[in-house]
Design a binder for these strands. Structure first.
Length: 439
RNA sequence: CGGAGAGUAGCUCAGCCUGGUAGAGCACAACGUUCGGGACGUUGGGGCCGGAGGUUCGAAUCCUCUCUCUCCGACCA
């Protein structure tokens, strides 16, 4: 993409509303624009990152055997009355009345709707296990939205719902999501720790929150340090196999949010030099809640014994839009964002140091064409800005690599490549650069 | 929902106390000089001062109401 034809409204100054680094950087990079409290428009750069994160989540859900659907943002109140949550959910639920005076709501979550879909079609244990998920905008009318997309009212969430005949099978479904989450977050360059957690208003018996450790996190967390260096299951992990050991390996080590933290147990179980207390950003949560919805909503399946039983369920959320901010919190420096390669909005930034100079333009255009043709996503700064400004902008945007092309290097037939994370620079011929990055 | 604060140019803010025809820096446009880590000069465009009412000869400024946003606390992917 040529910068001169793109839309990245960079800001030199920090808008006054931004309190945390990710919010500040997202605004300065022109990734998002606030349209109302906790409601954001996603500008091209932000939207690209959002989609890349979404795609990783999708791939890992699919790998774990979940099936993607798309449910609407608006729901009728009837279903929520069936589960008795219409009143229980309170003012956080945005309620809307249509022209026929029907009560609608902007979905804060989808247990009811997915259960309705399930019960309409699935009657036999032979159709199980089943896991349906979607990636859709949610709305929760938070009293106090803040920190940009970290705590917006409208947010993009992946929510999956598992259906099983009995608790043992439900546990296996839960484990599949547990492992899928470890993999998805790892692919985004994040170190996350699953923590035993409160089940909150959604309810249930078994729940883990996945936290990214960061100073600006909203939750206080306590954990065994070894959890930070646990191996993440590889892509060829057998999701039909026994995943319990993977879950147990982590569950054996103490990790809890302040809601369920037990200081005495923490000190008893974790040797002092392994204790860690810090802040965490919750980027995912998984629940097993049994028949909480299937029983009142009569989502029954017939078992091998011919008897109808309410289906055993769990729900599994990932805050996709929150992850954009969480990744920035976890990966930045004074100059700007440092994108992990898998979620970077572009693979490479190409800086033309002397736009308008025939030789430099030709060299850049040539590099840009070759890299693009070989599948590399390049942001090509072909503007007439001064070099200093271009470097600052590129560092702010934080693409993993920068290629710098100027007359001085071209005299020697070389261009410079710089790694954003390490700052390491190297001079190479244009052909060598193409070879290095071509897919 | 309790407490605190802010709405003036695209952004950051001054002006308000003590009413008198709206300002700065950055950004934007033109020209010139520049150009390897956020250049400089000259000129120019841009704001019914969040909205409504009131006081006054006169309101960004004083009063009342209202809307929006931000921060601190209790709740949440």
């Amino acid at each position: 993409m040529r910068l001169s034809r793109y839309f990245i409204p960079l800001l030199k100054e920090t808008p006054s509303e931004a309190q945390i680094v990710s919010h500040r950087l997202m605004l300065r990079c022109g990734m998002i624009r606030q349209e109302a409290a906790g409601i954001y428009a996603w500008l091209p750069l932000g939207y690209k990152v959002l989609r890349r994160i979404e795609q990783i989540v999708r791939e890992e859900m699919d790998r774990a055997g979940a099936v993607e659907i798309l449910m609407p943002t608006l729901q009728q109140s009837d279903l929520w009355k069936e589960s008795n949550r219409y009143d229980a959910y309170g003012p956080e639920m945005l309620r809307i009345t249509d022209r026929h005076e029907r009560e609608l709501l902007y979905g804060p979550t989808n247990e009811e709707m997915v259960t309705e879909i399930f019960r309409a079609y699935v009657k036999s244990y032979k159709s199980l296990p089943l896991n349906l998920y979607h990636i859709q905008w949610k709305f929760r009318d938070e009293v106090r939205p803040r920190f940009g997309v970290m705590r917006g009212r409208e947010f993009l969430m992946k929510d999956a719902y598992s259906f099983d005949l009995d608790t043992a099978a439900a546990r296996r479904s839960y484990n599949r999501m547990y492992v899928a989450y470890l993999r998805a977050f790892d692919r985004m360059g994040l170190v996350t720790v699953p923590m035993r957690a409160d089940t909150g208003p959604i309810g249930g018996d078994l729940s883990h929150e996945f936290h990214v450790l960061a100073e600006t996190g909203e939750s206080q967390v306590f954990l065994h340090k070894d959890l930070l260096s646990m191996p993440v299951p590889a892509a060829d992990i057998d999701f039909d196999g026994d995943l319990e050991p993977i879950v147990q390996q982590r569950s054996a080590l103490y990790a809890a949010t302040s809601d369920v933290h037990d200081q005495a147990r923490f000190e008893a179980e974790v040797p002092e030099h392994k204790r860690m207390s810090t802040r965490g950003i919750e980027v995912g949560q998984i629940f097993y809640f049994g028949t909480k919805y299937s029983a009142p909503m009569k989502a029954l399946v017939t078992g091998p014994d011919g008897k109808d039983v309410p289906v055993e369920s769990g729900s599994y959320g990932i805050g996709v839009s929150r992850l954009v901010a969480a990744i920035i919190e976890a990966s930045h420096d004074d100059a700007g964002i440092i994108w992990p390669e898998p979620v970077a909005p572009f693979d490479i930034g190409l800086v033309n140091l002397k736009s308008g100079d025939a030789k430099t333009d030709a060299a850049c255009d040539n590099l840009y064409a070759k890299l693009t043709a070989s599948g590399v996503d390049v942001l090509y700064d072909d503007t007439a800005e001064r070099p200093g400004a271009k470097f600052a902008s590129m560092d702010l945007i934080g693409l993993p690599w920068q290629i710098v092309v100027g007359p001085r290097g071209l005299e020697k037939g070389l261009v410079e490549i710089k790694n954003r994370k390490t700052g390491a620079k190297e001079e190479l011929s244009a052909d060598a650069v193409v070879n290095k990055f071509a897919r």
